[in-house]
Amino acid sequence: MIRYLLRRTAILLVSLSAAAVVLFVLLRLLPGDPANALLPVGATAEQIEAARRELGTDAPLLSQFFSWLGDVVTFDLGKSLVSTLPVGDEIAARLPVTVPLTLAAFTLAVLIAVPVGVLAAARADRWYGPVINAVAQLGIAVPAFWVGLLLITVFALNLQVLPAGGFPPGGWSDPGAAIEALVLPVVTVALVMSASLIRYVRSATLDVLGADYLRTARALGASSSQAMWRHGLRNAAVPVIAVLAMELATTFLGAVVVESVFALPGLGGMLVRGISQHDYPVIQGIMLVSTATVLVVGFLGDLAQRLVDPRLLHRSTS
């Protein structure tokens, strides 16, 4: 386990630095000069030159990269070109919206998908097996923002039981209002996420149901639900955990879009604003934070997979 942990940590560090390089190169390759964001239309060549010097974009690429990397390692993500406030501070201020939204939506999606997926596999011959399949198929084709719009229409505008959007200005100092504001966004993201999760859980369960060890357990006198609880779930969990780690990342992205539907002051709104204002430090900061999150979650997912199935540790590489 220790050897694996060291290897996997090394891979994580390599991918993190590679991701930083890719992100840096991508943003520099893009057409459009960040200096333009600072200047009015029709600025003179001297003004552009001055703005570039101020931003440091006139320096050679390699030195730009290392100075940026140096800042990032010390958690300095630069300043917004538009508001001139530190990007790191604004990201930190917005995490209390995005993180609870992502985690709650992910938890709810798992709570929906695992029992429903297992049921769809174990009772494929009953009427609800195909029905669950059809609903899941529908679910993966529905855009998250449309689900949000429909939920707002029904629960906020027609029934008026929940707010249509926004977040209490005091944030979590009024927990009741904060939770109320997050209910519909969480349900929106969770519904969309659970559709694809159900399909994974179902196929993992189907694989396990046909396995010899379940038949053996049954032959030794275990009831079908005992066999499933003791042997089936743990085996079915292995592929599902790998998918879960990826899905957590996707949930985060779903949250980015859904935040815009509900006008929540989270990372999503910040990213969309940054893009439309060509605010490169903001875009770079959010992309870096989200890519790092994706990679770290993948790392934790791999570790969890090996805890559930120690056989993987003895198998070849990665």
């Binding site: 390759l29 057409p31 459009g32």
Partner: peptide
């Protein structure tokens, strides 16, 4: 390795990044 990293950027984020530059 390069492909794995590119795939770690979800499609929509990558698209947003390009829209940021190209309009």
């Amino acid at each position: 390795v390069l492909l794995d990293i590119l795939i770690a950027f979800p499609t929509l984020l990558l698209a947003m990044l390009i829209v940021a530059g190209a309009g």
